[in-house]
Structure formats: C-alpha cells, structure tokens
Simulated scan of single mutants.
Amino acid sequence: MNRRKLMASLAVIPAIGLATPVFAQEEPLKVGFIYVGPVGDGGWTYQHDLGRQAIEEEFGDRVETTFIESVPEGADAERALSQLALAGNELIFATSFGFMDPVINVAAKFPDVKFEHATGYKRAENVATYDARFYEGRAVMGTIAGRMTESNKIGYIGSFPIPEVIQGINSSFIHARKVNPDVEMKVVWAYSWFDPAKEADAASALIAEGVDVILQHTDSTAPLAKAQEAGAIGFGQASDMSNFAPSPRVSSIIDNWAPYYIERVGQVLDGTWESKGTWAGIAGGEVEIGEITEAVPAEVKEEALALKDSIASGEYHPFTGPLNRQDGSEWLAEGQVATDEELSGMNFFVEGITAKIPE
C-alpha cells in the first residue's frame, strides 16, 4: 500500500467507529553514570554500579541506564559527561570528587540535563551533590583497629588529601586511641583512588614500619592481599570485600547508594527533582558496617556495634570534644561537637598523629 492510500484508509476509520485512540509509548528516562574506576574494582565503583542496577530493578522499562567506567578526573571527565548528555541522558551521576569542575562546566552547556555529583560541594540549578558520612564508619573501624593491634601501630592508606579523607583518618585515629592510648598511626598517600600497584606498595611500606592493622581510603583489594601475606589485618573499603574474610578482612565500611539513586530517579520521573546537597550516614543507611568476623573477639565486636548504634541514634558524634589540632591548639572543648561546616573543610590532623598533610 502506498503512502497516499494508507492515509486515505486511516481517514475513514473514525467515521465507521472502529478505531481506538493510539498513543505513542512514553520514552524511558535515560540515566547515565561516569565512574572513576572499573565496575569490577570490588570497592567504590562496584558499589555505585550496584546502585545503578537497583534503579533498573526498581523502575523496569521506565528507565534506561548506561555507564562509562575508568574515567580519569579532568578533561576526560568533561568529554565523558558531554557524551552522555549528547546521547540523551536526562539525569547523570558523576561518582568521584575530582569530577566536580567538569560537572559544573558541562552542566552549564546542558541546562536541561540534571546532574548529581558524589562527594562534591559545588551546585547549580541543574547540579545537586550527595555524600556519605564515611567518618562515622571509620570510627567503628578505628575502634576495632585499636583493640586488635599487637604492635600498637596502625596504618592508613590515603587517596588524596581532601577533607573527606582527612575526616576518615582523624576519626579512625581518635577512636583507636580511645580504646588503646598507646596507638600510633602511620599514613601513606597513594595519590590515586584506584591503582592496585600503588596501593600494594603503600601497604608494603606500612608493614615495613611495623604496622599490623591497615585501613584505607582507596578502592582496590590490593592492600588486603598484602596484609594477608604479612599476617596483618585490614578492612573492606566501600564494599564488603568478603573474599578476604574472616581474615585479613575483619569488617568493612560499605557505601549503600541504592536508596539515594532510587529516590532521585523517582523524583525526576514525577517532576519533583531539585538541586540540593545531601549528606547521610549510618542512620540514613548510606554507611553500613559489614560483617564483623570471628577473627574479632566477641567483646570487641560488641563494643564496635554499640558505637555504631550510638552514632545511628544521634546519641554520639565521632567528633566530640575535647579534641585538639595536631599542633596542640584547642579545636573542640569538652562536649562540643564539630559542625558540618568545620568537617566539610577539614584540613588538619588531630593531636597525636605525627604524619603531615601534603601541601
């Protein structure tokens, strides 16, 4: 049938009363993600991708998701974000701190696209930020570390010297010291979020200094592998990393992004999305404490879980005075609690940490 005959036949259908209205199927909401590491890193990126999968499970064919993995922070991030926007994604999640300026730059070019940036602080009308209070989980890990160390030397592998990481180092140390006043903390910087070789070298350097408990704010399982070789213990970072349980991985801090992602996608779908900043923790379910294995004595496990519960209830804040800065000057008086503004700009170590923050 040629086009003229087709149109003529369609024209008579209403007259004989046989037609029912036909509406075009609503297109699915396209949601894009960029990841700083590979989805198989077993840590940070893996958890974000679980959140992406949770969106698909929750909304089915109402959404269509895609991701670009292993995106370096900088110009490459701008290209990846632009690629997702040009591909028709109406909501884009950028899941690493160093994507902050690329998000702001690309968002200005695509005002009709909504952007969400993880762990950043710059917002715009179409840019929201979201973060988790990782320092709450670090307090619990620090408690276990302080109880479990035999050498009284615990180590911390930092990624970059930004407030989020400095908060974690301070919180871990404060709570290790609370249960073990003889604890020393060694800090090594990897200057990468995900680089197994650098992370392994950092763990080896700490072990060479007598460290027998390793914490990390980097994304691979390489430090746990080194701890296993040396007979040290460690903790899962961002994800459970349960392949290393019951030891050296004796517990973990888990980032659960799924509830947030589901909430925000739902708000785009129902038209209620707005730019805002979100910073949730243990109480909000974004920070979880993984299984505490049998390698940890029962009384230590009980102590750690009690701390978790007191943080969740709001009874206790991990940064409660008296606390001094590294140089001995007073920071928080007895009973005083750090404000979110102080924490979000934290650029100093607390008293007792001898390591220096790189300039």
Rank of each mutant, 00 (worst) to 15 (best):
R138D: 07
M141F: 11
I16S: 12
V12Q: 04
T143H: 13
E73V: 01
G231I: 15
G137M: 10
P246L: 13
A128M: 03
R123S: 00
K114F: 01
K186G: 12
N152K: 10
M346L: 05
A306R: 15
G266H: 01
G158C: 11
Y261A: 00
A232M: 08
A107Q: 07
E90T: 10
A19L: 08
E58Q: 14
F97I: 11
A54E: 06
F235C: 00
A202S: 14
A124R: 09
R249L: 01
P72Y: 08
G335N: 06
E342C: 13
T119V: 08
T45V: 07
F348P: 15
H317D: 12
A306L: 14
G142E: 01
A280K: 05
G142V: 00
G277R: 05
E291K: 03
N347C: 05
D327Y: 15
V113N: 06
S275L: 05
R52D: 01
A245R: 08
S159E: 10
M241N: 04
L91N: 02
I104T: 15
R52H: 02
Y260R: 09
N152D: 13
I92G: 01
G158H: 10
G146M: 13
G321N: 03
A355G: 01
V63L: 06
F319K: 02
A280D: 07
G98Y: 11
L307R: 02
